[in-house]
Amino acid sequence: MVKLLTTDARKRVLTTAAEEAHRRGDRRIGTDHMLLGLLHEPAAAKLLGVGLDDARRVSSTLDRAALAAVGLDAPTLDAPLPVRSRRRPPFTSGSREVLKRSVDEARAVKSRHIEARHLLLGILSRERPDPAAELLAAMDVDVAGARARLKRPAN
């Protein structure tokens, strides 16, 4: 069996995903946080055609719409928490699926490394109501097109 190594980019994405979860006060690293983590990578942002700030803003818009749907109007505090929990938050089951999928994607192309692109393919395989899929849909990202471009054997 091919030993799969992790790359710096993947590690970086998982770290920024944890930071995004923390920033929003979430207890678990969700697929939406992983997507935000990926958008810290300029290559991923370019491929999807959306920026990190856009994604954060649209995510907040979805939050406000959800609150309005149940008749509530509360502020969404988009500021990092002043106190950092020492524990790294666990992944949601959706995020664990993405991690599994990224391993499959890496194996499928005989890559010895799980790269950020494989994580991105994992994210792009999610379907609504998955939070990352909802966010991509709200930003009108061409998911099928992005998948096709990632799968193309260039580079």
Binding site: G25, A66, V70, G71, L72, A74, P75, L77, P129
Partner: peptide, 30 residues
């Protein structure tokens, strides 16, 4: 007034409220 026909919106709202509670808690514990 707290009921939405759409569970995706209703459940997301619960997540937002959890987050808001975490944020308010962290600020005031400090």
């Amino acid at each position: 007034e707290l009921v939405s026909e759409d569970p995706a919106a209703g459940l997301r709202a619960v997540g937002v409220l959890h987050r808001l509670a975490e944020q308010v808690e962290a600020i005031h514990v400090e």
